[in-house]
């Protein structure tokens, strides 16, 4: 069994990584406030890490948050129509970059998978959920170790 994620990362580090990603991708003036969460119902995207520590980095947002995120990242006007593909694409890219930056803080060498959206595998006991708030929307970044028997992904959509 690999080292538990709780001993490899603390909440402050995950929050700092997320804040940097938010500032660069969502907007220089966009503030991600640590705390709040978890998100009970929402949309998730995640990316896998394989190495001395294996698991997933999962981003979960409420539906309203994902819509607002898409508008912010794509710099769309509030009246512009959103395409479902773009909403998922934005969520996947945020999870992908969060995963890449979290991976860089973990023991290596390791590899990053392709981001997916849908219902993420249920976490086991090796899990670190970090809550945050953006524009009043709660969101959760969950770093979770691989379970002994990996869950199937019947509802996932691999990025295209």
């Amino acid at each position: 069994m690999s080292t538990p994620i709780a001993t490899l990362l603390d909440d402050e580090t995950v929050s700092a990584v997320a804040a940097e990603v938010w500032s660069a991708l969502v907007g220089a003036d966009e503030v991600l406030v640590p705390g709040r969460g978890p998100v009970a119902e929402g949309r998730s995207a995640w990316v896998g890490v394989e190495g001395p520590w294996s698991g997933l980095v999962v981003l979960t947002c409420s539906t309203t948050a994902t819509d607002d995120l898409t508008r912010a990242v794509l710099q769309l006007a509030p009246t512009e129509e959103l395409e479902a593909d773009d909403v998922d694409d934005v969520l996947r890219e945020l999870a992908n970059i969060l995963g890449g930056n979290v991976k860089s803080l973990l023991p290596g060498p390791s590899t990053l998978g392709l981001p997916q959206t849908g219902t993420p595998p249920h976490p086991g006991s090796d899990v670190r959920p970090v809550g945050a708030t953006w524009r009043g929307h709660p969101l959760t970044i969950t770093v979770q170790g691989a379970t002994e028997a990996p869950a199937q992904h019947p509802t996932t959509e691999v990025t295209s």
Binding site: E20, V21, S23, A24, L25, N96, I97, G99, G100, N101, K103, S104, G108, P109, L112
Partner: peptide
């Protein structure tokens, strides 16, 4: 322009002939 920029990846990229590796997020 990629989501991770570990030293191993930078070395692999350079050996293959890449000029640079920009890790996301970028400005």
């Amino acid at each position: 322009v990629t989501s991770e920029g570990s030293p191993e990846m930078r070395e692999t990229a350079a050996e293959a002939g890449a000029l640079f590796l920009i890790a996301k997020p970028f400005t």
